[in-house]
Design a protein around this nucleic acid. Structure first.
Lengths: 137, 137
DNA sequence: TCACCCCCTTGGACTAAGTCTAGACCTCGA
DNA sequence: TCGAGGTCTAGACTTAGTCCAAGGGGGTGA
């Protein structure tokens, strides 16, 4: 909130443009883990003439510059996530929705001990169902 | 090894056929985590007239009947894995190769404690490089 | 103010992965 | 032998994503 979106883009070496701002406004402020085509659909609501190639180019640029991360978690769906800090993921089996799980909510030990493997990063991918508040039925 | 492939198929409620056997012979005995098209390519070496639809149908059938598991781990690639026991995965960032990691090589605690989430299964996905023996350069 | 250049965007063609469908083909039991 | 059900094939179709050539727009120097 302290820095504006154009500043954020510039600080990552990205020249702001109207299209890039429109993509950034949506994708840097969502927890919905949208796919590229979902981003396209959303951005077109406010910017109907934007082309698919531009959205793909922009998302790939944001990933390359570290503004976004790309995940392939479920069923070959590739999604984008503005949360670039280490975290885990929970996939709701009934809806397919992806939820972030804070890094310290899971306690993983001995990852680095695997012989012959130089583990640079890891995450826990969980599957199951959400309980409680979301479903009042 | 104790049970033949036709028996294995039948015991999972799958009627054996020449095509299904050809797919099963390769895919139930590999650790390579092949994609569907890789399976198609491999099976065609010995069975050139098999169609792509048959290979996809067969793989999906095997997954539905619990003979195989499907993973979407890296870059939207969907791969098949005959190892249906719980295990983790290591992805070699330089080659894209996927390696199985034994369940007890990683020590995960507190997964079940996430409030509001009913975790039915989980795995640790690691990324990095293989060290040592594989690279003699 | 003008012109130029460079970067960005566009639309459409192209590719790859996967699904669907209609018809042909087996195979097995009666 | 016949029929029915399940299986296989080829090809059309869909979806996700990339590539490319051409057009456009904004900043900078003259």
């Amino acid at each position: 909130m302290s820095t504006s979106i154009p500043e954020t883009l510039r600080s990552h070496g990205i020249q702001p443009s109207a299209q890039r701002l429109a993509v950034a406004e949506y994708v840097l402020d969502t927890t919905a883990h949208p796919s590229a085509d979902q981003v396209w659909g959303k951005v077109r609501e406010r910017f109907p003439m934007i082309s698919r190639a531009t959205v793909y180019n922009t998302l790939n640029l944001f990933v390359a510059r570290g503004l976004l991360r790309q995940h392939a978690l479920s069923e070959g769906r590739v999604v984008f996530d503005p949360n670039t800090e280490p975290h885990h993921h929970f996939i709701d089996e009934t809806t397919g929705a992806i939820h972030d799980v804070p890094w310290d909510a899971v306690d993983v030990r001995r990852v680095a001990e695997l012989r012959g493997l130089d583990v640079r990063e890891y995450q826990v991918v969980m599957r199951g169902r959400r309980k409680g508040k979301a479903e009042k039925a």
